[in-house]
Nucleic acid binder design. Sequence first.
RNA 1: GGGCGCGUAGCUCAGCCGGUAGAGCAAUGCCCUUUUAAGGCAUGGGUCGCAGGUUCGAAUCCUGCCGCGCUCACCA
Length: 555
Amino acid sequence: MAAAGDAPRQPATQTWQITNYQLQIARYNRCFLFKALTPMALDENIYQLRRQKLAQIEALGQRAYPHKYQTTHEIPQILADYKDRTAEQLGDPKVEVRIAGRIMAIRLMGKAGFAHLQQGGQRLQIYVKKDDVGEPGFQLWKLLDIGDHIGVRGYLFRTRTGALTVHVQELTFLSKDLLPLPEKWHGLTDVELRYRQRYVDLVMNAEVRDVFVRRSKVVQSIRRFFDAHGYIEVETPMMQPIAGGAAARPFITHHNTLDLDLYLRIAPELYLKRLVVGGLDRVYEINRNFRNEGISTQHNPEFTMLEFYQAYSDYRDLMDLTEELLAQVAHEVTGSTVVRYGGHEIDFANWQRLSMREAIQKYWPENAGPKPQMRDFASAECVGALVRRFNAAHHPHMPYDPTDPAGKTIAALFEAVAEEHLIQPTILYDFPAAISPLSKKKQDEPEWVERFEIFIGGLECGNAFSELNDPEEQLRRFEDQVRQRQRGDEEAMAEVDYDYVRALSYGMPPTAGEGIGIDRLTMLLTGSPSIRDVILFPLLRPERKTAAEEDTEAE
RNA sequence: GGGCGCGUAGCUCAGCCGGUAGAGCAAUGCCCUUUUAAGGCAUGGGUCGCAGGUUCGAAUCCUGCCGCGCUCACCA
């Protein structure tokens, strides 16, 4: 390594040059980052160089971390308002602007140069000329790096090549980027890095930004819809002593002062219905649920759910409401009710409604014999025969446990036979009572309940039912769930929520309720194939140093 | 958890019939006052994910592990 011998050759006037010798010294004084993190996406040499530049910038009289910068325009606004103005129109009268942004490209040309400033997700070119910004301004200009934040004052003009540009008269330093941004052309493509360092992903990839802007519009549109339909938005506990309202394994946490184990909620359902008992006839909540289960392109351990409840209504009312809601959201968010997803055109204004049994009949494979009749769903024996016919004709075989109740097998049969075909928006209704412990039974068929699920693009993205409001039947169904759980059914509920039964005992009006997965809905409306693409910070294993690295640090 | 794939410079990627590493961008120095993937000249930068093994010799072959992706299972 070249050491102190190199130092004298560096021109004394350009003190931001870093010699190897200086770098060696700097390493004795390592930044916390390099002690705390793996080398992933860290470049220590550049980091130290830029610290030196930051000191130089301060020496020029700029503050390293100023508190604010007053702008007159947003970059997207300038682009929208002036993109069609000619050079002449921009020259008289001059359009004075003060803008701020992150430098995304620099083109130095002797005593002048260009840069692109990015702000509000868009880029505008600036032109810096020594004659106009003066000697100190130009010294600052030469100390800037890609990734730095600056503010500029100047006026709009068009270059010879016609590019709308800010002719800079004053440069203000705002914040230093000490770590190099990814390459300007390919950006950041490594999927793991994109998730781990979403902040860099957002800087580099405009489409990613668009996805999350659109996600925000989805939620706004939903709120507008429910607010206009007489609902109030509420927030119910995320930490619950009993994890109820769904069948899923919960996360456990602990409250120290109360010395109390709590569960992160798997659903808000039982609390929202308590509110309906209390006279809040129309409530909705948009918030996180937590399920301690597998991770996949459709499952994140924490996910966002819309749940809403409407008194004096049944599941038929919610079918109508759902179609209206999702058509509105799709239109407000994308500009059309028709979206492309996974190679399909999906029309959120064009729904089909099928009962679960109809769906099995409709999509029954040709080679599995005659289509099932309604009476084939009537008993466990008949349903078992259907499964055997299906499995004889179809691979992979669907799992089948003859000791399961018929309803559970029918639901599994539906998943195997029909689910993948439900690309266009579908309301799939009438579910087996056996898998629906919180739903009200159909009047004419006690083995079936008034429940529906929403399928779009092959994704299950909603679940709704007429709410069971008979406290004694609810208690029996809870107890039945607990018995199933004790028999080893991990999906069954673990504990009876007696307070919920008590609440129902005060009388809940006839009520229908529904949950819609915001993440999956956003996937559909943004063309995202993975749920991680619509969650800003999906759960990943933490970065960990290897044992060798730990040893080095310990020295 | 099973199967398949990936992991090389800050980023994007070559190299992978074993002979101790390359390109572009980014960075550093010099030139350049309307460029836009600016350009020209020069320079620095790598525990080839980690740990073992085979070999005279491993980024390359083998095994284990770690991380990520896809997929199946799981998961209303």
